[in-house]
């Protein structure tokens, strides 16, 4: 096991290093955005003096390197900074929610996003693997082709289109689920789940294709190997051959694709959030970019990057652990 621990530690260190580099990239990229908060708040007719005074208030007149280290130091202490918009200018933007720090502002939104991602994952991952196994078992049959056509067309359609189709069939024609997902703090769990169902189903349709097709391909890839032939020659049922003998050896690539799709569920769902009015982090992110609320944008980017790196790290470690040669050295 010592061997595996070393590998895991190596990956963790690499992950932290990546995160540090990403933080630089985020900072530079966000600061390259044209215009700044002062200008976008004060509008066209602002006097240069007024702009300069707001810039000074917010520390925007400091050199970039100083600002980066201030920000990084804050992040390391757990302080993501103060939202420009919420700090002194809430009256301008009309979005005063009483939360002044970035952390306070992001926390509830992020929790909502994680909730939606979790529900989607619970539905989508088993469903995709199950479909993938069946498609491998009945490969090149009508079932296989139908599954492929279904998943490929759903991944090829725009998300809002899928969302509206689901609203049409599951909310309007057959009112099973509510079409608005305006969840709020303190809502009972059952109701939360019910309200999140349509966005979760939409996202399931989006992520199923990748995972299902990788499962199918990884299994079929192994079917020509001698141990699969041996399993067949032992007179085992085709289902057992695939589930017991092929699937455990096909896990590594499947796990990686699952991780990529889970990362997408956290970082890329803004369109679905908008359609269903779901208060997730995606909407907050887009709003903050619009008004150049730099601390919020940076914090969101950093959270997205962390999610991406953590999930890929987990996937790496799990693929390594799925190899019995590493789990049980000689």
């Amino acid at each position: 096991m010592g061997n595996v621990l070393t590998i895991i530690l190596q990956r963790l260190t690499l992950g932290l290093l990546t995160l540090l580099i990403v933080s630089i990239v985020i900072f530079v990229a966000v600061n390259l955005l044209p215009g700044d908060f002062a200008q976008s708040i004060l509008g066209q007719g602002a006097t240069p003096e007024a702009v300069a005074s707001i810039r000074e208030d917010l520390g925007l007149d400091q050199p970039m390197v100083t600002r980066y280290f201030d920000w990084l130091g804050g992040v390391l202490r757990g302080d993501l900074g103060t939202s420009f918009a919420q700090a002194n200018f809430a009256s301008f933007t009309g979005t005063d929610s009483g939360a002044t720090t970035v952390a306070q502002q992001i926390a509830p939104r992020f929790a909502n996003t994680m909730f939606l991602a979790m529900i989607t994952a619970i539905i989508a991952v088993p469903f995709s693997i199950f479909l993938g196994v069946l498609a491998a078992l009945y490969r090149n049959t009508v079932f296989d082709r139908a599954t492929n056509i279904f998943t490929l067309s759903s991944i090829s359609s725009p998300e809002f289109f899928l969302a509206y189709i689901l609203i049409l069939f599951l909310a309007v024609l057959n009112p099973i689920f509510p079409s608005l997902s305006n969840i709020f703090e303190g809502m009972p769990f059952g109701e939360r789940v019910e309200k999140s169902m349509l966005p979760a189903l939409t996202l399931t349709l989006v992520v199923t294709a990748h995972m299902m097709r990788m499962t199918r391909a990884a299994i079929i890839n192994l079917l020509a190997s001698p141990y699969i032939e041996m399993a067949r020659l032992k007179g085992l049922s085709p289902m057992r051959v695939i589930v017991k003998h092929a699937l455990p050896n096909a896990l590594a690539p499947i796990i990686n694709v699952i991780a990529l799709n889970l990362a997408y569920l956290i970082t890329g769902v803004v369109v679905v959030e908008v359609v269903f009015v779901y208060p997730g982090i995606g909407q907050l992110f887009v709003d903050s970019v619009k008004i150049r609320d730099i601390p919020v944008v940076q914090a969101c980017c950093l959270i997205f990057a962390t999610a991406f790196i953590l999930l890929n790290l987990t996937a790496d470690i799990m693929s390594i652990l799925s190899n019995p040669r590493l789990r049980h050295p000689k």
Binding site: S225, P226, Y227, E229, M230, A231, L233, K244, H245, P248, N249, P324, R325
Partner: peptide, 14 residues
């Protein structure tokens, strides 16, 4: 059946 390469014909995962 007994195959030529036992190393390849035993499932590495079990």
């Amino acid at each position: 059946y007994v195959a030529q390469s036992a190393a390849a014909s035993f499932n590495p995962a079990h």
